[in-house]
């Protein structure tokens, strides 16, 4: 190639430039075809609580050691029950805050007395492991006010979400960044 510098274009060079131009055109064509989505909004991962079956894989499948999925409490749907199916084990010996009565393996669901006969339930996000045991109880026997969501201060927003690949019910969806949560109390019921 060096010898050709300063000389006029050889046939070899011309073919090479044609090939280069062609390849560049193909790449540009691909970019033009796949891009230009109307909104430039970034997509983030979220759980559709209407599809979730609480299989428990969110707890273990996330690429982060402590998963980005947490239980959230749609307090507007909560019945403030004294006997909470998301809080107490089905065979709980007594209905108090002792650890042996709780479903939550990490004590992340905190129960506080409000007024007779009502109790408030709050999720401690630091402790929650996203296992969904409380969600299962609340969804099956209660109001369904506890549900799982991807917390966006923790989620690293992988190109493809590892949990979404193992989610059995296809509950993992990509939503626009501006509406990053699918809050059950605000979703239309299906």
């Amino acid at each position: 190639m060096k010898d050709n510098q300063g000389k006029k274009l050889t046939r070899r060079d011309a073919v090479a430039w044609l090939l280069r131009g062609g390849t560049a055109a193909v790449i540009a064509g691909i970019v033009a075809k796949v891009s230009a989505r109307p909104s430039g909004d970034r997509l983030v991962w979220q759980i559709d609580p209407r599809k979730c079956i609480q299989c428990g894989r969110c707890e273990t499948a996330c690429v982060l050691q402590h998963t980005a999925v947490r239980c959230v409490h749609g307090i507007e749907m909560c019945g403030y029950c004294k006997l909470c199916f998301g809080y107490f084990k089905p065979d709980a010996p007594r209905l108090d805050e002792a650890a042996e009565n709780q479903i939550c393996p990490t004590g992340a669901l905190v129960r506080k007395f409000v007024e007779p006969p009502y109790f408030e339930y709050v999720v401690d996000k630091e402790l929650c492991t996203g296992c969904g045991l409380c969600v299962k109880g609340c969804t099956n026997f209660g109001n369904g006010s506890l549900y799982l969501q991807v917390c966006h201060d923790i989620c690293v927003n992988c190109n493809t979400c590892r949990i979404s690949e193992v989610c059995p019910s296809g509950a993992f969806v990509q939503v626009p960044e501006s509406e990053a949560y699918l809050l059950k109390e605000k979703l239309p019921r299906t």
Partner: peptide
């Protein structure tokens, strides 16, 4: 049970209790 979406009605509180707002952090 799945048929009923809200099995237990939301209570009216006499003690003036107001539920705390939960923050949903946006992606950064």
């Amino acid at each position: 049970c799945a048929l009923a979406s809200s099995r237990f009605p939301q209570p009216q509180f006499d003690s003036g209790y107001v539920a705390e707002k939960v923050a949903y952090p946006m992606p950064s």
